[in-house]
Amino acid sequence: MRSFAKRYAAAIGAALAFAAFIAAFPAWRGAALGSMGFQTKAMLLVIPPIFILLGLLDVWVPREKMIRYMGEGSGVKGTVLAFLLGSFAAGPLYGAFPFAAVLMKKGSSFRNILVFIGAWSTTKIPMLLFEMAALGKRFALSRLAIDIVGILIIAWAIKLALPRKEVDRLYAEAERIG
């Protein structure tokens, strides 16, 4: 187990850099502190339910089920499921990463993990409704259509570009973190 100081070294460095930034640019001080407060509140609000849900997923969904539904041999069904899982999610993209780690641990295929991340990032249903209202149906729906294609292409391209060994390493890492 790594020590506390080593794990938090980057965070402490970032905090010091932030203090230096505030001291060096008084013009941005108010805005920086304001957005720091806003983002902290947003994170504190959104994090508890996301992590509770991933804890429940971890405990209640058996590995065999996940492999059957979203594993290597799950085919189109698995991809659709990954899309739906990401699309019905709520919350910012950084909430998707720990979730993805649990899905990896449970045996979901890497391609489906990438589809899930892509769907979480762009095809979230509550956001889509909001986008339609603000920017118009044509804008939102054409963006949705092209993004669904894009998510699949990006997932395929990453899978192709990433060596098998690196994917195996990520799965081992997910096992360790989860």
Partner: peptide, 22 residues
């Protein structure tokens, strides 16, 4: 498990917080 997962990512989360604020 939820708590462990959260504590595991907390260091990176704090870095992200600073980056976002700036």
């Amino acid at each position: 498990k939820a708590w462990k997962a959260f504590e595991g990512i907390l260091p990176q989360l704090l870095v992200v917080l600073v980056l976002v604020a700036v």
